[in-house]
Amino acid sequence: MAKPRIKVPKMAKVGEIVEIKSMISHKMESGRRKDKKTGKVIPRKIINALKVTFNGKLVFSASLHPSVSANPYFAFDFKVPGSGDMVFEWTEDGGKVITAKKSLKAA
């Protein structure tokens, strides 16, 4: 269901500020929509959190609410401290966690 895309540069200089991008395929069912046929409210199911760490240290995190558009997209900046792994974690309602990882080499 949910499939992530991330953009992290492969190489960067130490101290350089680079833009990181992420997007994940998700309906972001708000819990306010009704099923056209049955008239019943479709239960809420959203990605409720995104957490991004670099070598285990927090870079950016966000709690997401139903007013975030479908296929949540987040771009943010990152000041490169050195080489390492950037890990993305999306948490869906119900507790399912989707992760993605990319390595960055610092020059």
């Binding site: 499939k3 895309r5 991008k21 994940i24």
Partner: peptide, 12 residues
């Protein structure tokens, strides 16, 4: 190319 949300389907 990254921001285009249609590319999620393209990759799929």
């Amino acid at each position: 190319d990254f921001d285009n949300p249609g590319n999620l389907w393209l990759e799929e």
